[in-house]
Amino acid sequence: MSHAPDHPAHLAHHYETPRQQFEAGKLGMWLFLVTEVLLFGGLFCWYAVYRANQPEVFLAGHRYLDKSLGGLNTIVLIVSSVTMALAVRAAQLGNRRALLGFLAATFLFACCFLGVKYVEYSHKIRDGLLPGRHFQPAAEKTGAGRVPVAPADAPPDAPPAPAPADPAPAGAPAPPPGAADAPRLVPSAAGPEGLAPPPTREVAAEAGRKSVHLFFGIYFVMTGLHGLHVIAGMIVIAWLFFRARRGAFSPSYWLPVDLGGLYWHLVDVIWIFLFPLLYLIH
């Protein structure tokens, strides 16, 4: 092992040993990840409260998303996590070429992720599915059937199996009407006698379509904030790349690579939850 001199250049003055600095950096990063988890935690809470109380909105909304693009992006992000982990490994071993290669690969996969997101977003925008006051589904504007409108008289007990011609080949992401996924509604309206009977499934499906803008609010805010984190991660990776090229890291000092890796993996973990919650609703 190479011997660190008494006070190596990368050791800040107020630390006694490199180990103390290393552990302080790690703990600091984990605490930062805690703040990220809670930031997204608020969004997950928003999601959970709405999904628990208005499941029909999510059933209606997820049909506009393309599972195959979402799945593709999940895999892209996982692979980028692998290359990031390999980059950390290369840094620990002092293999500069491998470190640069893996950092570059991670960066490229991140670009891929954003590229796919761009495709998805542009379809949504074309279909007028931006949230809030920009929400104007194409069907209302043009009368065209691009936006799926599940018939309100869908047979409630139809078997869900033939989930219609699922993921259209990439490029045509508008999924067909999920007539079969008859929405389930928790009959929460059935209060002690004073209240009317719970709405039927048809009513619920209709209601889900009416409130589907709520789903897109959640979709865009959650994936948008995640996308911003991906961009921030790319900046960090690029910074690590240039520092590595200047030879800043060595087997005795690779803490920044490790911290950047932790951040990138957290971005991956958040997507691991976003994917099933937004795209895979049954």
């Binding site: 703040t35 809670l38 608020g42 709520l214 805010v221």
Partner: peptide, 24 residues
């Protein structure tokens, strides 16, 4: 560390609702 990020996201959602009109 544990609580402040939730305020952050709350205020962001408030801004999103006010500026974009997302129902939150």
């Amino acid at each position: 560390v544990l609580a402040t990020p939730v305020l952050g996201i709350t205020l962001i959602l408030l801004i999103v609702e006010r500026v974009v009109g997302v129902g939150i």
